[in-house]
Design a protein around this nucleic acid. Structure first.
Lengths: 196, 196
DNA sequence: TGTACATCAGTGAACGCGCGTTCACTGATGTAC
DNA sequence: TGTACATCAGTGAACGCGCGTTCACTGATGTAC
Protein backbone atom coordinates (compact mmCIF):
# COMPACT_ATOMS: atom_id res chain seq x y z
CA UNK A 1 0.00 0.00 0.00
CA UNK A 2 2.91 2.27 0.58
CA UNK A 3 3.13 3.42 -2.99
CA UNK A 4 -0.59 3.90 -3.50
CA UNK A 5 -1.90 6.06 -0.70
CA UNK A 6 -5.67 5.83 -0.43
CA UNK A 7 -6.16 9.05 1.46
CA UNK A 8 -4.35 12.15 2.58
CA UNK A 9 -1.36 10.99 4.56
CA UNK A 10 1.47 12.64 6.29
CA UNK A 11 3.89 10.35 4.49
CA UNK A 12 3.09 10.67 0.84
CA UNK A 13 4.79 7.44 -0.16
CA UNK A 14 5.52 8.38 -3.74
CA UNK A 15 6.34 12.03 -3.53
CA UNK A 16 9.32 11.88 -5.82
CA UNK A 17 7.30 10.53 -8.72
CA UNK A 18 4.41 12.87 -7.99
CA UNK A 19 6.68 15.90 -8.06
CA UNK A 20 8.43 14.88 -11.26
CA UNK A 21 5.11 14.23 -12.95
CA UNK A 22 3.82 17.58 -11.74
CA UNK A 23 6.95 19.29 -13.05
CA UNK A 24 6.66 17.74 -16.49
CA UNK A 25 3.04 18.83 -16.61
CA UNK A 26 3.95 22.38 -15.68
CA UNK A 27 6.62 22.45 -18.38
CA UNK A 28 4.19 21.27 -21.02
CA UNK A 29 1.60 23.81 -20.06
CA UNK A 30 3.58 26.88 -19.16
CA UNK A 31 7.12 26.49 -20.40
CA UNK A 32 10.36 26.74 -18.50
CA UNK A 33 9.37 29.75 -16.44
CA UNK A 34 6.33 27.94 -15.05
CA UNK A 35 8.49 25.33 -13.37
CA UNK A 36 8.93 26.42 -9.75
CA UNK A 37 9.12 24.59 -6.46
CA UNK A 38 5.90 26.14 -5.25
CA UNK A 39 3.85 25.30 -8.33
CA UNK A 40 5.19 21.76 -8.38
CA UNK A 41 4.23 21.31 -4.77
CA UNK A 42 0.76 22.73 -5.31
CA UNK A 43 0.12 20.45 -8.27
CA UNK A 44 1.34 17.42 -6.35
CA UNK A 45 -0.88 18.42 -3.44
CA UNK A 46 1.85 18.85 -0.87
CA UNK A 47 3.24 21.72 1.15
CA UNK A 48 5.51 23.98 -0.85
CA UNK A 49 8.40 23.16 1.42
CA UNK A 50 8.15 19.47 0.54
CA UNK A 51 9.99 19.54 -2.81
CA UNK A 52 12.71 21.72 -1.34
CA UNK A 53 13.15 19.13 1.38
CA UNK A 54 12.95 16.14 -0.92
CA UNK A 55 15.23 17.40 -3.69
CA UNK A 56 17.47 19.59 -1.57
CA UNK A 57 16.48 22.73 -3.43
CA UNK A 58 15.28 23.85 -6.81
CA UNK A 59 18.28 22.58 -8.75
CA UNK A 60 17.73 19.09 -7.47
CA UNK A 61 14.18 19.06 -8.76
CA UNK A 62 15.18 20.48 -12.14
CA UNK A 63 17.92 17.88 -12.39
CA UNK A 64 15.54 15.02 -11.64
CA UNK A 65 13.10 16.28 -14.26
CA UNK A 66 15.87 16.66 -16.83
CA UNK A 67 16.98 13.09 -16.12
CA UNK A 68 13.43 11.95 -16.77
CA UNK A 69 13.60 13.89 -20.02
CA UNK A 70 16.67 11.97 -21.18
CA UNK A 71 14.92 8.75 -20.32
CA UNK A 72 11.93 9.76 -22.43
CA UNK A 73 14.23 10.85 -25.25
CA UNK A 74 15.88 7.44 -25.30
CA UNK A 75 12.49 5.73 -25.24
CA UNK A 76 11.25 7.78 -28.17
CA UNK A 77 14.32 7.00 -30.24
CA UNK A 78 14.10 3.29 -29.43
CA UNK A 79 10.41 3.29 -30.26
CA UNK A 80 11.07 4.70 -33.71
CA UNK A 81 13.93 2.33 -34.27
CA UNK A 82 11.85 -0.72 -33.38
CA UNK A 83 9.22 0.37 -35.87
CA UNK A 84 11.77 0.69 -38.64
CA UNK A 85 13.20 -1.88 -40.97
CA UNK A 86 16.33 -3.59 -39.78
CA UNK A 87 18.86 -2.26 -42.23
CA UNK A 88 21.35 0.16 -40.68
CA UNK A 89 20.37 3.11 -42.78
CA UNK A 90 16.69 2.92 -41.94
CA UNK A 91 17.53 2.40 -38.27
CA UNK A 92 19.64 5.52 -38.11
CA UNK A 93 17.02 7.56 -39.90
CA UNK A 94 14.42 6.29 -37.45
CA UNK A 95 16.56 7.20 -34.46
CA UNK A 96 17.04 10.69 -35.82
CA UNK A 97 13.34 11.09 -36.38
CA UNK A 98 12.77 9.95 -32.82
CA UNK A 99 15.13 12.59 -31.48
CA UNK A 100 13.33 15.20 -33.52
CA UNK A 101 9.89 14.02 -32.52
CA UNK A 102 10.83 14.13 -28.85
CA UNK A 103 12.12 17.69 -29.21
CA UNK A 104 8.96 18.81 -30.93
CA UNK A 105 6.56 17.05 -28.61
CA UNK A 106 8.35 18.16 -25.45
CA UNK A 107 9.50 21.66 -26.19
CA UNK A 108 9.93 22.94 -22.70
CA UNK A 109 11.42 19.72 -21.37
CA UNK A 110 13.93 19.79 -24.19
CA UNK A 111 14.60 23.41 -23.23
CA UNK A 112 15.34 22.37 -19.69
CA UNK A 113 17.69 19.60 -20.77
CA UNK A 114 19.76 21.83 -23.03
CA UNK A 115 19.05 25.33 -21.80
CA UNK A 116 20.96 27.81 -19.74
CA UNK A 117 19.36 26.56 -16.52
CA UNK A 118 21.88 25.31 -14.06
CA UNK A 119 21.46 21.63 -13.43
CA UNK A 120 23.48 19.39 -11.13
CA UNK A 121 25.60 17.92 -13.88
CA UNK A 122 27.34 15.52 -11.55
CA UNK A 123 24.09 13.93 -10.42
CA UNK A 124 24.46 10.17 -11.02
CA UNK A 125 20.94 9.73 -12.34
CA UNK A 126 21.27 12.60 -14.80
CA UNK A 127 24.58 11.23 -15.97
CA UNK A 128 23.21 7.73 -16.36
CA UNK A 129 20.09 8.74 -18.28
CA UNK A 130 21.89 11.13 -20.59
CA UNK A 131 24.54 8.49 -21.29
CA UNK A 132 21.82 5.95 -22.10
CA UNK A 133 20.19 8.31 -24.56
CA UNK A 134 23.55 9.02 -26.08
CA UNK A 135 24.14 5.29 -26.36
CA UNK A 136 21.10 4.83 -28.59
CA UNK A 137 22.50 7.34 -31.03
CA UNK A 138 25.91 5.76 -30.73
CA UNK A 139 24.61 2.34 -31.67
CA UNK A 140 22.73 3.76 -34.61
CA UNK A 141 25.88 5.36 -35.94
CA UNK A 142 28.16 2.42 -35.29
CA UNK A 143 27.76 0.77 -38.70
CA UNK A 144 28.81 3.92 -40.50
CA UNK A 145 31.86 5.93 -41.13
CA UNK A 146 32.01 9.38 -42.57
CA UNK A 147 35.11 11.04 -43.98
CA UNK A 148 38.45 10.71 -42.32
CA UNK A 149 37.01 10.83 -38.81
CA UNK A 150 35.38 7.40 -39.13
CA UNK A 151 32.66 6.37 -36.71
CA UNK A 152 33.24 9.09 -34.20
CA UNK A 153 32.96 11.68 -36.92
CA UNK A 154 29.67 10.17 -37.99
CA UNK A 155 28.22 10.24 -34.53
CA UNK A 156 29.17 13.81 -33.84
CA UNK A 157 27.92 14.96 -37.21
CA UNK A 158 24.62 13.17 -36.83
CA UNK A 159 24.15 14.44 -33.32
CA UNK A 160 24.89 18.01 -34.36
CA UNK A 161 22.62 17.71 -37.35
CA UNK A 162 19.66 16.32 -35.48
CA UNK A 163 20.16 18.60 -32.51
CA UNK A 164 20.39 21.63 -34.77
CA UNK A 165 17.25 20.61 -36.61
CA UNK A 166 15.47 20.31 -33.31
CA UNK A 167 16.59 23.81 -32.40
CA UNK A 168 15.65 25.61 -35.57
CA UNK A 169 12.35 23.82 -35.99
CA UNK A 170 11.13 25.01 -32.63
CA UNK A 171 8.08 27.15 -32.84
CA UNK A 172 8.48 30.86 -32.28
CA UNK A 173 12.23 30.76 -32.71
CA UNK A 174 12.13 31.51 -36.39
CA UNK A 175 9.74 33.49 -38.51
CA UNK A 176 7.41 31.21 -40.44
CA UNK A 177 8.83 32.24 -43.80
CA UNK A 178 12.32 31.47 -42.53
CA UNK A 179 11.27 28.04 -41.41
CA UNK A 180 13.02 25.21 -43.09
CA UNK A 181 10.44 23.13 -44.83
CA UNK A 182 9.18 20.39 -42.58
CA UNK A 183 9.46 17.92 -45.41
CA UNK A 184 13.23 17.94 -45.49
CA UNK A 185 14.03 14.46 -44.32
CA UNK A 186 17.09 12.79 -42.96
CA UNK A 187 16.82 10.37 -45.84
CA UNK A 188 17.91 13.23 -48.10
CA UNK A 189 20.81 14.15 -45.93
CA UNK A 190 22.37 10.89 -44.92
CA UNK A 191 22.94 9.08 -48.22
CA UNK A 192 26.63 9.91 -48.18
CA UNK A 193 27.28 7.81 -45.14
CA UNK A 194 29.18 4.71 -46.09
CA UNK A 195 28.86 1.39 -44.35
CA UNK A 196 32.11 0.38 -42.72
CA UNK B 1 26.57 67.34 -28.28
CA UNK B 2 23.31 65.55 -27.92
CA UNK B 3 24.77 62.09 -28.27
CA UNK B 4 27.73 62.65 -26.01
CA UNK B 5 26.48 64.03 -22.73
CA UNK B 6 29.29 65.61 -20.73
CA UNK B 7 27.55 65.48 -17.39
CA UNK B 8 24.53 64.06 -15.65
CA UNK B 9 21.54 65.25 -17.62
CA UNK B 10 17.86 64.73 -17.37
CA UNK B 11 17.78 63.78 -21.04
CA UNK B 12 20.32 61.04 -21.48
CA UNK B 13 20.66 61.48 -25.22
CA UNK B 14 21.81 57.96 -25.99
CA UNK B 15 19.87 55.85 -23.58
CA UNK B 16 18.95 53.17 -26.07
CA UNK B 17 22.57 52.37 -26.86
CA UNK B 18 23.57 52.61 -23.23
CA UNK B 19 20.89 50.14 -22.18
CA UNK B 20 21.71 47.64 -24.92
CA UNK B 21 25.40 47.82 -24.07
CA UNK B 22 24.59 47.35 -20.41
CA UNK B 23 22.39 44.38 -21.24
CA UNK B 24 25.05 42.66 -23.31
CA UNK B 25 27.51 43.20 -20.48
CA UNK B 26 25.13 41.67 -17.98
CA UNK B 27 24.60 38.65 -20.22
CA UNK B 28 28.31 38.09 -20.58
CA UNK B 29 28.90 38.30 -16.87
CA UNK B 30 25.89 36.66 -15.34
CA UNK B 31 24.03 34.74 -18.03
CA UNK B 32 20.41 34.99 -19.05
CA UNK B 33 19.04 35.27 -15.55
CA UNK B 34 21.15 38.34 -14.83
CA UNK B 35 19.42 40.34 -17.54
CA UNK B 36 16.69 42.36 -15.83
CA UNK B 37 15.29 45.83 -16.35
CA UNK B 38 16.55 46.99 -13.00
CA UNK B 39 20.11 45.77 -13.44
CA UNK B 40 20.29 47.21 -16.93
CA UNK B 41 19.14 50.55 -15.65
CA UNK B 42 21.60 50.52 -12.77
CA UNK B 43 24.49 49.69 -15.07
CA UNK B 44 23.48 52.41 -17.51
CA UNK B 45 23.23 54.84 -14.61
CA UNK B 46 19.56 55.69 -15.00
CA UNK B 47 16.44 55.20 -12.96
CA UNK B 48 15.09 51.69 -13.07
CA UNK B 49 11.90 52.91 -14.64
CA UNK B 50 13.78 54.33 -17.61
CA UNK B 51 14.24 51.10 -19.62
CA UNK B 52 10.62 50.13 -19.01
CA UNK B 53 9.63 53.49 -20.42
CA UNK B 54 12.04 53.42 -23.32
CA UNK B 55 11.45 49.86 -24.49
CA UNK B 56 7.84 49.53 -23.38
CA UNK B 57 8.61 46.73 -20.98
CA UNK B 58 11.05 43.90 -20.49
CA UNK B 59 10.29 42.11 -23.74
CA UNK B 60 11.14 45.20 -25.73
CA UNK B 61 14.58 45.38 -24.15
CA UNK B 62 15.25 41.68 -24.64
CA UNK B 63 14.17 41.99 -28.26
CA UNK B 64 16.50 44.92 -28.91
CA UNK B 65 19.40 43.02 -27.36
CA UNK B 66 18.62 39.91 -29.40
CA UNK B 67 18.55 42.02 -32.56
CA UNK B 68 21.99 43.32 -31.64
CA UNK B 69 23.03 39.71 -31.24
CA UNK B 70 21.99 38.82 -34.78
CA UNK B 71 23.91 41.82 -36.02
CA UNK B 72 27.02 40.63 -34.22
CA UNK B 73 26.50 37.10 -35.51
CA UNK B 74 26.40 38.38 -39.10
CA UNK B 75 29.50 40.46 -38.50
CA UNK B 76 31.41 37.51 -37.10
CA UNK B 77 30.50 35.30 -40.05
CA UNK B 78 31.44 38.02 -42.54
CA UNK B 79 34.71 38.62 -40.73
CA UNK B 80 35.67 34.95 -41.05
CA UNK B 81 34.59 34.87 -44.68
CA UNK B 82 36.69 37.90 -45.57
CA UNK B 83 39.73 36.27 -44.02
CA UNK B 84 39.23 33.10 -46.04
CA UNK B 85 40.30 32.21 -49.55
CA UNK B 86 37.80 33.02 -52.25
CA UNK B 87 36.82 29.55 -53.37
CA UNK B 88 33.26 28.60 -52.42
CA UNK B 89 34.19 25.71 -50.21
CA UNK B 90 36.60 27.70 -48.07
CA UNK B 91 34.09 30.53 -47.83
CA UNK B 92 31.35 28.27 -46.53
CA UNK B 93 33.67 26.65 -44.03
CA UNK B 94 34.70 30.10 -42.85
CA UNK B 95 31.11 31.21 -42.43
CA UNK B 96 30.34 28.10 -40.41
CA UNK B 97 33.34 28.70 -38.21
CA UNK B 98 32.15 32.25 -37.69
CA UNK B 99 28.73 31.04 -36.56
CA UNK B 100 30.39 28.66 -34.17
CA UNK B 101 32.83 31.24 -32.86
CA UNK B 102 30.01 33.67 -32.17
CA UNK B 103 28.07 31.04 -30.26
CA UNK B 104 31.08 30.16 -28.14
CA UNK B 105 32.18 33.72 -27.48
CA UNK B 106 28.68 34.95 -26.66
CA UNK B 107 27.06 32.08 -24.82
CA UNK B 108 24.35 33.96 -23.01
CA UNK B 109 23.55 36.24 -25.93
CA UNK B 110 23.19 33.18 -28.13
CA UNK B 111 20.95 31.75 -25.42
CA UNK B 112 18.74 34.79 -25.55
CA UNK B 113 18.49 34.68 -29.34
CA UNK B 114 17.44 31.04 -29.46
CA UNK B 115 16.15 30.32 -25.99
CA UNK B 116 12.72 29.93 -24.52
CA UNK B 117 12.54 33.61 -23.60
CA UNK B 118 9.64 35.34 -25.23
CA UNK B 119 10.82 37.97 -27.66
CA UNK B 120 8.75 40.30 -29.81
CA UNK B 121 9.17 38.27 -32.97
CA UNK B 122 7.32 40.79 -35.08
CA UNK B 123 9.70 43.60 -34.15
CA UNK B 124 10.99 45.05 -37.45
CA UNK B 125 14.54 45.44 -36.22
CA UNK B 126 14.72 41.88 -34.92
CA UNK B 127 13.30 40.61 -38.20
CA UNK B 128 15.73 42.67 -40.24
CA UNK B 129 18.84 41.67 -38.32
CA UNK B 130 17.99 37.99 -38.17
CA UNK B 131 17.24 38.02 -41.89
CA UNK B 132 20.59 39.66 -42.60
CA UNK B 133 22.43 37.02 -40.60
CA UNK B 134 20.50 34.33 -42.38
CA UNK B 135 21.43 35.95 -45.68
CA UNK B 136 25.14 35.49 -45.02
CA UNK B 137 24.62 31.78 -44.60
CA UNK B 138 22.39 31.74 -47.64
CA UNK B 139 25.04 33.29 -49.83
CA UNK B 140 27.65 30.88 -48.58
CA UNK B 141 25.45 27.94 -49.51
CA UNK B 142 24.33 29.28 -52.88
CA UNK B 143 27.10 27.67 -54.94
CA UNK B 144 26.25 24.23 -53.65
CA UNK B 145 23.61 21.64 -54.05
CA UNK B 146 23.16 18.61 -51.89
CA UNK B 147 21.06 15.60 -52.72
CA UNK B 148 17.70 15.98 -54.36
CA UNK B 149 16.79 19.10 -52.40
CA UNK B 150 19.38 21.24 -54.22
CA UNK B 151 20.43 24.57 -52.77
CA UNK B 152 17.69 24.85 -50.25
CA UNK B 153 18.54 21.44 -48.90
CA UNK B 154 22.14 22.50 -48.54
CA UNK B 155 21.28 25.61 -46.62
CA UNK B 156 18.98 23.89 -44.20
CA UNK B 157 21.43 21.08 -43.62
CA UNK B 158 24.33 23.44 -43.04
CA UNK B 159 22.30 25.61 -40.75
CA UNK B 160 21.12 22.63 -38.71
CA UNK B 161 24.63 21.23 -38.58
CA UNK B 162 26.29 24.41 -37.43
CA UNK B 163 23.50 25.30 -35.05
CA UNK B 164 23.59 21.86 -33.53
CA UNK B 165 27.34 22.03 -33.13
CA UNK B 166 26.95 25.34 -31.38
CA UNK B 167 24.46 23.78 -29.01
CA UNK B 168 26.35 20.68 -28.06
CA UNK B 169 29.69 22.42 -27.74
CA UNK B 170 28.33 24.79 -25.12
CA UNK B 171 30.08 24.53 -21.84
CA UNK B 172 28.23 22.79 -19.04
CA UNK B 173 25.64 21.26 -21.33
CA UNK B 174 27.49 18.02 -21.75
CA UNK B 175 29.77 16.07 -19.51
CA UNK B 176 33.40 16.48 -20.50
CA UNK B 177 33.71 12.87 -21.60
CA UNK B 178 30.67 13.29 -23.82
CA UNK B 179 32.12 16.33 -25.47
CA UNK B 180 32.74 16.03 -29.17
CA UNK B 181 36.38 16.69 -29.81
CA UNK B 182 36.96 20.33 -30.52
CA UNK B 183 39.15 19.43 -33.44
CA UNK B 184 36.33 18.06 -35.53
CA UNK B 185 36.20 20.55 -38.36
CA UNK B 186 33.65 21.43 -40.94
CA UNK B 187 36.26 20.59 -43.54
CA UNK B 188 35.82 16.96 -42.56
CA UNK B 189 32.08 17.11 -42.76
CA UNK B 190 31.36 19.08 -45.88
CA UNK B 191 33.36 17.33 -48.62
CA UNK B 192 30.25 15.73 -50.07
CA UNK B 193 28.78 19.04 -51.12
CA UNK B 194 28.89 19.36 -54.86
CA UNK B 195 29.26 22.61 -56.77
CA UNK B 196 26.21 23.31 -58.88
C1' DT C 1 15.42 88.29 -30.15
C1' DG C 2 12.59 87.01 -26.43
C1' DT C 3 8.63 84.84 -24.26
C1' DA C 4 5.02 81.38 -23.51
C1' DC C 5 3.79 76.96 -23.96
C1' DA C 6 3.47 72.05 -25.35
C1' DT C 7 5.98 67.95 -25.53
C1' DC C 8 8.30 64.26 -23.72
C1' DA C 9 12.38 61.74 -21.64
C1' DG C 10 13.53 60.30 -17.45
C1' DT C 11 12.62 60.30 -12.00
C1' DG C 12 11.76 58.15 -7.69
C1' DA C 13 8.68 56.39 -4.51
C1' DA C 14 5.35 52.99 -3.85
C1' DC C 15 2.96 48.77 -4.98
C1' DG C 16 2.00 43.87 -4.97
C1' DC C 17 3.73 39.53 -6.43
C1' DG C 18 5.87 35.06 -6.46
C1' DC C 19 9.87 33.23 -5.42
C1' DG C 20 13.31 29.98 -2.58
C1' DT C 21 14.74 29.24 2.00
C1' DT C 22 14.44 28.48 6.84
C1' DC C 23 12.87 26.32 11.06
C1' DA C 24 10.40 24.72 14.93
C1' DC C 25 6.88 21.40 14.66
C1' DT C 26 4.06 17.09 14.01
C1' DG C 27 2.73 12.72 13.04
C1' DA C 28 3.68 8.29 10.80
C1' DT C 29 6.91 4.57 10.52
C1' DG C 30 10.27 1.13 11.80
C1' DT C 31 13.01 -1.08 15.28
C1' DA C 32 14.71 -2.81 19.77
C1' DC C 33 13.48 -5.24 23.55
C1' DT D 1 2.47 -9.45 21.48
C1' DG D 2 3.00 -4.98 23.29
C1' DT D 3 5.57 -0.86 24.58
C1' DA D 4 9.11 2.76 24.25
C1' DC D 5 11.81 5.29 21.45
C1' DA D 6 14.46 7.04 17.46
C1' DT D 7 14.03 8.39 12.87
C1' DC D 8 12.49 11.08 9.32
C1' DA D 9 9.06 12.76 5.73
C1' DG D 10 6.29 16.41 5.31
C1' DT D 11 3.97 20.89 7.50
C1' DG D 12 2.91 25.66 7.68
C1' DA D 13 4.07 30.09 9.00
C1' DA D 14 7.37 33.55 8.48
C1' DC D 15 11.21 35.79 6.22
C1' DG D 16 13.54 38.78 3.00
C1' DC D 17 14.49 39.48 -1.76
C1' DG D 18 14.35 41.18 -6.43
C1' DC D 19 11.34 41.67 -9.78
C1' DG D 20 8.20 44.48 -13.34
C1' DT D 21 4.79 47.95 -13.28
C1' DT D 22 2.55 52.19 -12.20
C1' DC D 23 2.05 57.11 -11.68
C1' DA D 24 2.31 61.76 -10.34
C1' DC D 25 6.21 64.56 -11.02
C1' DT D 26 10.13 67.36 -12.95
C1' DG D 27 13.07 69.46 -15.87
C1' DA D 28 15.04 69.90 -20.48
C1' DT D 29 13.93 70.66 -25.23
C1' DG D 30 11.75 72.42 -29.33
C1' DT D 31 8.39 75.41 -31.46
C1' DA D 32 5.05 79.14 -32.34
C1' DC D 33 4.55 83.77 -32.33
Amino acid sequence: MRNQPQKKQHHHGNLREALITAGVGLLNEGGLSALTLRKCAARAGVSHAAPAYHFKGLNGLLTAIAARGYQALAETMIEEREAAATDPHACLVAICNGYLRFAQENEALFDLMFSAKELCYDDPELQRESALARQVLHEGCAPFKHGSAGNEGTEIMIWALVHGFAGILRKRRVRPDHHPANNIRFEDILPHLECV
